[in-house]
């Protein structure tokens, strides 16, 4: 009864969020459960045979998937902290500027987030091109040898990480600037009266009060980096020799090139469990209320 009373009381709220929830259920929740169900089948384009946990067992012995899993973790470990630190740094720097400059920098950093991935990749392909690329031209000016940035297993993963970071910085910067705007100036004034240095203000006031934003950025970026796909598909296609293969790219190849939808769904199941667990862990670790 209290539940019904609560629903009746908030009927207008439910009315407005209802359409979004319906779409979310149809296009996210239902495919999620369907994907999990599919992972227990040997499923091709038309035929489906129940195989229980066989697909998951096969993943344990699949060296290519193991490599993709490790590469994905590698991406998360490199990219997420760098995005967090850089976006906070840039946000603080931009926040101190006047309104016009703030707008210019916010737009500049956000631009890659809204630009076409294909166009950005074309630019990066030119930058990384081993024979006529900009990067080798610049390193050549200081006498460094030519490097196949995307074709060398030692450099391919870091090279892709730079691309992902350059794309992903915009949104966290905007969020951190919004977070900084939400911190009362009075707190800083009180700290200054108490003789706190700029560094102390940053560590003792800014960082703690930005915790909700930080948690949000951390969780969304972690999930986002777990889903790295476009950069891999358009720049390296998982090569050389699986050096940049990620879980999502493996799912794509397994489903659409090998036509093994059940096995691909099992990979998706693993991704769901791992990324979900890490996101939950991060949320618990930071123990903060999220307001966005």
């Amino acid at each position: 009864m209290p539940l019904i009373r609560s629903i009746v009381k908030g009927r207008w709220g439910y009315f407005f969020i209802g359409p979004a929830y319906v779409l979310f259920t149809i296009f996210t929740i239902y495919p999620l459960f369907e994907g999990i169900r599919l992972s227990f089948y040997d499923a091709g384009l038309k035929m489906r045979t129940w195989v229980g946990f066989e697909n998951y067992a096969r993943l344990l012995t699949d060296s290519a998937f193991r490599r993709a899993f490790l590469n994905t973790l590698h991406f998360v470990v490199i990219i997420v902290p760098v995005i967090l630190v850089l976006s906070l740094l840039f946000a603080v720097l931009i926040f101190g500027l006047n309104y016009v400059l703030q707008s210019i920098f916010r737009a500049a950093f956000y631009l890659p987030s809204v630009a076409s991935g294909v166009v950005l990749v074309a630019v990066w392909l030119w930058i990384y091109n081993p024979t006529y690329g900009l990067l080798n031209y610049l390193t050549g000016l200081v006498g460094l040898p030519r490097i196949a940035w995307l074709g060398d297993a030692r450099w391919a993963l870091p090279a892709l990480s730079v691309v992902v970071i350059s794309w992903a910085l915009g949104r966290p910067i905007i969020l951190f600037i919004a977070g900084l705007n939400g911190i009362s100036r009075e707190v800083y004034e009180a700290a200054m009266i108490d003789g706190a240095s700029s560094w102390q203000q940053f560590i003792r006031i800014t960082l703690p009060l930005l915790t909700p934003t930080t948690v949000f950025v951390l969780v969304t970026q972690t999930i986002g980096v777990f889903q790295t796909f476009v950069v891999v598909q358009l720049l390296t296609r998982g090569g050389p020799a699986y050096a940049t293969q990620t879980i999502v790219y493996s799912i794509y190849v397994t489903a659409f090139q090998f036509l093994q939808f059940g096995y691909a769904a099992a990979m998706g199941g693993v991704l769901l469990v791992v990324s979900g667990s890490i996101a939950l862990f991060q949320l618990r670790l930071m123990r903060a209320d999220i307001e966005y």
Partner: peptide, 21 residues
């Protein structure tokens, strides 16, 4: 063989041909 044979695209290779590389 040109560097980057492992991840170079067909279009990039064509471009190198047109540039005499």
């Amino acid at each position: 063989i040109q560097p980057g044979a492992t991840t170079m695209t067909s279009a990039q290779l064509d471009t190198m041909l047109w540039r005499g590389e």
